[in-house]
Design a protein around this nucleic acid. Structure first.
Lengths: 245, 245
DNA sequence: CAGTGGTCTAGACCACTGA
DNA sequence: CAGTGGTCTAGACCACTGA
């Protein structure tokens, strides 16, 4: 039943970081202080903190100290891609065309909306991603204002909501549901493809700890987008979604 | 330039395991022997081996010793799914219908075939995956006989080649390319869907160390399959591809 | 019950880097 | 140059578990 001391220290800080009690950039106590607080040797503290470094939750710098890690866009295997950054990496011009922006109550008939919103509201942000002025993906996104109150005041004119979230909100868990769908009439019109054309659909839910941050449904033109995930047992490199050559 | 001792020990064994010099189930020297071999303290050996445990490359058991880990099907985030196992988990009857089985030279005009084959031959295995006798996916697979000589004699009548490979060959790296495609005329016929219907296409390459094991292209009926990947910074649970409810 | 790994200690010296 | 983390030592006691 009783956990080893290094595991207790590790899980203490993991919990505090995931709960948001310790925010990205916050400094942790130095090893000497933790030794005294937990009444153990420095090696034990070091083992616990090394595990948190390996998990990507903290960064350590000599002389400076130990800090809660800032979210890294590409730290995950098959991570949450930043479409804007990907398009620009290809040397294309990225444009985001807003379609809908509305702060509203969750639809009580939709369980996923009430789950995400909790006792708060939802910001609905729909838009079109374009590469070199050609439609690439249609996005329907809901953001929990409980989890991300700042977004209500964020300037989303130049930055698509996904990029803004990746840069401002650290996520700890995500779930991707990837499927092939036939474009509906409206989707086809916005994406400039024939109705019924094969599209790649990514539905993603993102959490920070237990709190939902955002749900998003992205419909990509099947002829101009694929997901690429490279992973290994030893050096899991970040997967990325990239358009074809 | 010079790496710390624990890192040197870790990378030594990582390299030997990935090269196949140490095979799954093989026993590693005990900590006392490693202390003498590397001329360091036991804590240093322990740190190196603990990192290999965290990476999933070795297992350690008290009294028994330290062993190269056996490949685990579900150890990866967004791993290599076993379609047969998935269908059976849903309580459906899984059937594999062989279409093509041929041992042949790589097509010199196809760079991916010559790369996979090396100086050896390729086993081409095409077939159809069915769930409750309904077509689910069409599979075109090439296996390197250099990497997997045993497969030429394997009994693949009851076991689809993907399941056989997962159970017999440990892979260390994989790459998935996921896209949406319109069913070709032949694909549509075999999958019993209209020509042009949206399908989910998974193209996967799998390696052991630097040696390619298999390339596979799977075309799933878009209306009956999706990929689900759940991942987090703290407890990366294995992603799995599952059919919809 | 003996072999092996899991954990921990109380030091040490050094490397880095920010004030 | 002083604070902090990175690494390492030479022990120790214990828990587990296979022979």
């Amino acid at each position: 039943m009783k956990k080893p001391m290094h595991e207790r220290i590790r899980s203490d800080f993991e919990a505090r970081i995931l709960a948001g009690e310790l925010a990205p950039g916050d400094r942790l106590p130095i090893e000497q202080e933790l030794m005294q607080h937990y009444g153990c040797a420095r090696m034990t503290v070091n083992k616990a903190l090394s595990a948190l470094v390996a998990a990507g939750l903290i960064d350590r710098r000599k002389k400076a100290g130990t800090f809660v890690a800032r979210p890294r866009v590409h730290s995950m295997v098959l991570d949450v891609p930043d479409i804007a950054a990907q398009v620009r990496e290809r040397g294309q011009v990225y444009t985001y065309m807003p379609i809908v922006r509305s702060l509203r109550r969750p639809d009580a008939a939709r369980i996923e909306e009430t789950t995400l919103a909790g006792n708060g509201a939802l910001l609905q942000v729909d838009g079109l991603h374009l590469a070199d002025a050609v439609p690439l993906a249609l996005e329907h996104r809901l953001v929990s204002t409980n989890a991300v109150p700042e977004i209500a005041d964020a300037d989303l004119r130049d930055v698509p909501p996904g990029s803004w979230l990746l840069q401002h909100v650290p996520w700890t868990e995500a779930e991707n549901r990837i499927s092939a769908v036939a474009a509906s009439e409206e989707e086809a019109r916005l994406l400039a493809i024939p109705t019924g054309a094969a599209c790649l659909c990514v539905e993603r839910r993102t959490w920070r700890g237990r709190e939902g941050i955002t749900n998003v449904r992205q419909v990509f033109r099947g002829d101009s987008y694929f997901l690429l995930a490279h992973f290994g047992s030893t050096t899991p490199s970040g997967g990325a979604a990239v358009p074809p050559a």
